[in-house]
Amino acid sequence: MAKEYEVQINGQPTWYSDQVRRFKMYFAEPENQVNRDTGILLLIAGYGGNANSHVYQKMRRKFADMYNFVTLQCDYLGWQFMQDDQHLAITEQMLRKELSPREFRSLEKDYAGNQQILHGKTFSGKIELRENAQEFNEMGMNQAMDHLMALHILQDILKENGLDYCRDRVYIYGQSHGAYLAYLCNRLAPDLFCGIIDNSAYLFPYYLEHDRQVTKIGEIFSLQKIYHYMMADQEIDREGYDLEYLYRGFDNHARIICYHGIDDEMIPLEEKSSFLDHVNGALLHTISNREVDGKTFKSTGHSLGADMLKVFGMALAELETEKKEKQVTNTFQETKIITSKYIYWIDRIQGVPILYREKYENK
């Protein structure tokens, strides 16, 4: 069985706080130990997922042993605010909004005897997230940099232990927001990754423009939790979040295998297809009703109701049979991104890659 490890490291400094952040990274090495054929697989969880969930722990162990990878994940900036299990208490205001005055009075008078009033109702309320300048769902480059810092630390650990790995097998696998962050990681470190497996990545963070709604269906009634994130109220650098802008003219070195549904409600297939048409080495698999088999794919909507283990196996087979047009170096080369507002660059003066930005003045 794969050997598992947990390390706490410093995180990417946020734009809004000078305090040092700490977060945990988790990795597993194959039972047969690391060798020159062993790859590195970075797994990035999206909304509702996290590195400590059963499915991701299983993926780290299984992929390490089955496919000969060192598998890596981390508790990146704001992950705790992206879960589905935030508590929502039903308030009188929520009840009055959905019930008639007569129904409310009946329920108030005898709750146990009149619970049938609640049947089929959905009660909606806003989650109190308690985000702050130190910990918040940033949705962009800061979250991507946490993953790149964790990967850098992992490479150092392998080197310090005299363990060589296969430079041609450094991949990222993400779903939804996790896949979006995979594209950001690749853009910030252009010579690091050999391949990306993308399930339903959007091109711009959906929840910067929409409240997130999570509905939990109960035996009697349903609860709709509304998440409004702090970043949605900030003045942001839109170009720094927009993959279409960031990949414009970008010399992509990574092979990209993308799965996207015809009914994706977060980003239309046409927009995703148009984007990938201009990215070197990208292959789009369109998921229509014909591909929905109830096993690998269960829907044609966002995230495809996908079995993440089965999707990975399919995509990996394609990645490893396709010949790369360009050789990557697996190093953090000098990277500079210029938008109309900022210049972004990565510096390793402190030993680990850290992203900096300054106001851009086009003189």
Rank of each mutant, 00 (worst) to 15 (best):
Y16I: 12
Y16S: 13
Q19I: 04
R21F: 07
D37Q: 14
D37K: 11
T38K: 04
L41R: 00
L42Q: 05
G46F: 07
N68D: 08
F69N: 00
F69V: 00
D75P: 00
L77Q: 05
L88Y: 02
I90M: 04
E92F: 01
Q93W: 11
R96Y: 07
R96I: 14
L99W: 03
F104W: 10
R105T: 14
L107K: 12
Q116W: 09
T122G: 09
S124P: 02
K126S: 10
I127E: 08
R130L: 15
Q134L: 08
N137H: 06
Q143A: 10
M149H: 08
I153S: 05
I153H: 10
Y165M: 02
C166E: 01
R167E: 05
Y171N: 06
Y173D: 04
Q175M: 12
S176Q: 04
L181S: 03
C194P: 05
Y206R: 01
D211Y: 12
T215L: 14
K216F: 07
K225W: 08
H228M: 11
Y229W: 11
I236Y: 05
L243P: 06
Y245I: 07
G249R: 05
H253F: 09
H253R: 13
I262D: 00
L269S: 00
L276S: 05
D277K: 11
L284M: 11
D293C: 12
T300W: 00
D307M: 07
G313P: 12
A317F: 10
E325I: 12
Q327C: 14
Q333E: 06
K336R: 13
I337Y: 12
I338R: 14
K341G: 07
K341Q: 15
I346N: 04
I349A: 14
G351Q: 12
P353V: 05
